[in-house]
Design a protein around this nucleic acid. Structure first.
Length: 269
DNA sequence: AGTAAGGGGCGTCAACCTGA
DNA sequence: TCAGGTTGACGCCCCTTACT
């Protein structure tokens, strides 16, 4: 866990009864920053909006905090430090591309060319089914939805993914296998490419295009919300560790002050 | 066992921000 | 200016815990 990976293994302040909001105020107080925006209690919505709009993102705040505290990872850089996973936690390759087939299955192509399958019922990458890759085709750089699927001439199922590549089912049964191939021909017979916006006619195609755009936007926003929540949690953890560090520092300074007082104060005998 | 309360996660919407 | 990213807010669902 991040909390332990950076030698910041203090008692978790949240377990001592702090809410994350309390923590934020606590850090603001200790560091004398201007983060205690809602300390006044009730504020009108307009003011609240202003405050929110002036508030930097979690990524920025945490990166600023990280630059102050050595050893605290910056958001966006934490991937490499997760190299050694804690015992008991199964690691899995982060997929670089995720595609959805016409049957609703998800195909994730991980770095190194591993292909993973996920059924519609499973959630996200959980439940992804690792499959054997028989070649190491480089995955396309961006994630996108598969627009079409087809049955190849040999009866094997194919999924066409962006980047002019084809994921081909090369074995069926209990342990299906898939390959990433460059398509031999431009398109197999019977495959119809999704129409480009410029070639749309009729209200039905326009409606389909609008639906497709909406679903794409929802999917992206879904992922963005997940990422945002992950960053928020990381931000709270960062605040927790900062509180712990500052409390220790504060305690030391108080002790030091008491010691100096004892040394330099005139004896009153 | 049944139930209410509380917490966490998720999807979605909307407002705002930012970079091209 | 606009498309895409970010994030607060809301409602929903599921799980856990305490209580009856």
């Amino acid at each position: 866990m991040w909390w332990h990976q950076h030698n910041l293994c203090f008692r978790n302040p949240l377990e001592e009864g702090y809410s994350s909001g309390d923590l934020e105020k606590k850090v603001a107080t200790i560091t004398e920053t201007d983060e205690s925006a809602d300390s006044e209690g009730v504020i009108d919505s307009h003011k609240h909006r202003e405050i929110l709009s002036q508030r930097p993102s979690y990524r920025r705040i945490l990166n600023e905090l990280s630059s102050d505290v050595p050893g605290v990872p910056k958001i966006g850089e934490e991937k490499s430090e997760e190299g050694g996973s804690p015992p008991g936690i199964t690691t899995m390759a982060v997929p670089t591309s995720i595609y959805q087939t016409s049957t609703g299955q998800y195909i994730a192509i991980a770095q190194g060319g591993a292909v993973q399958l996920s059924n519609p019922g499973s959630e996200g990458v959980q439940g992804l089914q690792a499959l054997t890759m028989t070649n190491s085709g480089a995955p396309p750089p961006s994630a996108a939805l598969v627009h079409y699927a087809a049955q190849a001439a040999d009866g094997k199922q194919q999924f066409f993914v962006p980047g002019s590549q084809v994921v081909v089912q090369v074995a069926t049964g209990d342990m299906p296998a898939y390959q990433i191939r460059a398509p031999a021909t431009a398109l197999p017979q019977g495959v119809v490419m999704a129409a480009s916006p410029g070639s749309l006619h009729g209200p039905q195609q326009l409606a389909e295009e609008a639906t497709r755009k909406r679903e794409l936007r929802l999917m992206k926003n879904r992922e963005a919300a997940k990422e945002c929540r992950r960053r928020k949690k990381e931000y709270v953890k960062c605040l927790e560790s900062r509180v712990a560090i500052l409390e220790v520092q504060n305690k030391k300074l108080i002790e030091e002050l008491e010691t100096l007082k004892d040394i330099y104060s005139p004896k009153t005998d």
